[in-house]
Structure formats: structure tokens, C-alpha cells
């Protein structure tokens, strides 16, 4: 590692730490000097107390696990169905004509509009939240996978024809690897969407989870616990995105970013 590399990796930790440090300092100062009333926002001390309370009772872990498992399940279903569906839409004109308007309609409709039906059909809890996540993420994944397929350079298909890659081989050895870099971006966007919907879904159609924690704290006027929920959601969301970003370093994907 040369010095420039070391400096870059130090800076990639230092700069964000400075940003968050400054925000913490402002929060602390504003609370201590009385600019920020406790009625409107908790003090850092109240936040720490609230956080300890949640940890001691173990409920923060149960809520985190509930939310993570819902996002995990909803995301897995959306990717498993959305990516192949997008590839079919990108290659089969008939499927595109038939399904594109429906998907665009669903995408334009806020997934939260489905909450009443999610509750009627599935009942409050796990299933309803997973349903809402899938309704939000699946059309987005399918549509942007389709767009990625449409953007594959024509020359790749000519090469496929010259080298006898047809049917399933064409799909798995040409189309899929060609869209992988863009697919990673899609997966990151979809993950963000899943987190957003999870919070709203749990607030209205859940009885556990981080979103419900915020909802419940709101009812009890526990502003400190609202912030605890917000911080955990934000940090976990960042972590998930980071993990997906590692995919861009794989040799079969990196070419899309190095060019």
C-alpha cells in the first residue's frame, strides 16, 4: 500500500466521523444550552438512557431481529421473482407488452396504499409487512432489470450468435453477466426501498419490529425511544448497503465500474 492509498482509507473514516461528530456536538450543545426543548427532541443523555433500557430488557434485539427477518424475506422474494421476471420482460416482447403497464401502475402506487388490504387479507404482523415490502420492491427490481437488459450492446448478441450461444445459454452466459453491474445498483436501490417500507409497514400493520417501536414510543410520548429506533434503522440500512457494495469488487462485476 502506497501512502496515497493509506491516506485515502484514513480519510474515508475520518471525514464521516467529523460529520457525525459535529452533529452530535450541535445536538449536545443545543440541548445543554436549552435551545432544544426536551418536549421537542430528547437530550443525548435521555437517548443513552433509553438505549440502555432497551438493551437491558432485550426488546431492541427482538425488534431488530423481527425487522431484519421481514426485510430479509421480502427482499429475497422480490429478488428471486423480480430479476428473472425482468430478464424475461427484457427479452420477450409479448411479455413486455402484456406486463409493463401493470408494473408501471404498481410502481406508481405507493405501497402504503395496500396497507388496508394487507391487514384484511393477512392480518397484522409478519406476513402483512413482508407483503408490503414485496409489493414495493418487486416492480422496481423487475423494471430496472428489464432496462438493464435493454441496454446490453447489440454486439454482444452478435457475438453470441457467432459462438452458438442460444436459448438458456444466451440467458445465463450473455444476458445475465452483461447486466450484473447494473443489477448490483438495482439491488442497492431496492434494499433502501425495503427499509423504508418496512418502517411504515410495521407502524401501521405490525405488532413488533423497529417501526413498531417508533409507533409505540410515539403513543407513549417516549421521544428518546423514537430516536433509538431511528438510529438503529439508519445504521442497519447503511450496513446492508455496505454489504451489497462489496459485490462491486467481484471480478465478474468490477468491469462495469472500472471502465
Amino acid at each position: 500500500m502506497d501512502t496515497k492509498h493509506i491516506r485515502n482509507s484514513i480519510n474515508s473514516w475520518l471525514y464521516p466521523s467529523l460529520t457525525f461528530g459535529t452533529l452530535l456536538l450541535i445536538w449536545w450543545l443545543a440541548s445543554a444550552r436549552g435551545y432544544l426543548s426536551e418536549q421537542f427532541f430528547p437530550t443525548p443523555a435521555a437517548f443513552v438512557t433509553g438505549f440502555r433500557e432497551e438493551v437491558a430488557s432485550g426488546s431492541i434485539f427482538r425488534d431488530t431481529l423481527a425487522s431484519l427477518s421481514r426485510v430479509g424475506a421480502g427482499y429475497a422474494i422480490s429478488v428471486a421473482v423480480g430479476v428473472p421476471l425482468g430478464m424475461i420482460l427484457g427479452t420477450v416482447l409479448g411479455a413486455r407488452l402484456a406486463l409493463l403497464p401493470l408494473l408501471n401502475f404498481l410502481r406508481s402506487l405507493s405501497p402504503l396504499a395496500w396497507i388496508p388490504f394487507a391487514i384484511f387479507w393477512i392480518g397484522i404482523g409478519h406476513g402483512a409487512v413482508i407483503f408490503l415490502i414485496v409489493i414495493a420492491a418487486l416492480p422496481t427490481i423487475a423494471l430496472s432489470t428489464m432496462a438493464a437488459v435493454a441496454g446490453i450492446p447489440k454486439v454482444y448478441f452478435r457475438v453470441a450468435q457467432d459462438y452458438d450461444l442460444k436459448g438458456l445459454q444466451r440467458l445465463t452466459r450473455v444476458i445475465f453477466p452483461a447486466i450484473l453491474p447494473q443489477l448490483v445498483t438495482t439491488l442497492r436501490v431496492a434494499m433502501g426501498l425495503c427499509w423504508l417500507v418496512m418502517v411504515a409497514g410495521e407502524m401501521l400493520a405490525g405488532n413488533t419490529g423497529l417501526g413498531y417501536l417508533i409507533h409505540d414510543a410515539n403513543n407513549g410520548l417516549r421521544l428518546d425511544l423514537i430516536v433509538v429506533g431511528m438510529v438503529v434503522i439508519g445504521l442497519l440500512g447503511m450496513l446492508c448497503d455496505r454489504l451489497l457494495m462489496f459485490l462491486t469488487r467481484l471480478p465478474g462485476i468490477r468491469w462495469g465500474y472500472d471502465r
Binding site: V155, V159, A178, L180, W255, G256
Partner: peptide
């Protein structure tokens, strides 16, 4: 081809 006919993922 003129350019970019190789599969970049291989």
C-alpha cells in the same frame, strides 16, 4: 468487430 466485441466479464 470494430471494438468492444469481447465479453468484458470474461
Amino acid at each position: 468487430h470494430q471494438a468492444d466485441g469481447l465479453y468484458p466479464w470474461l
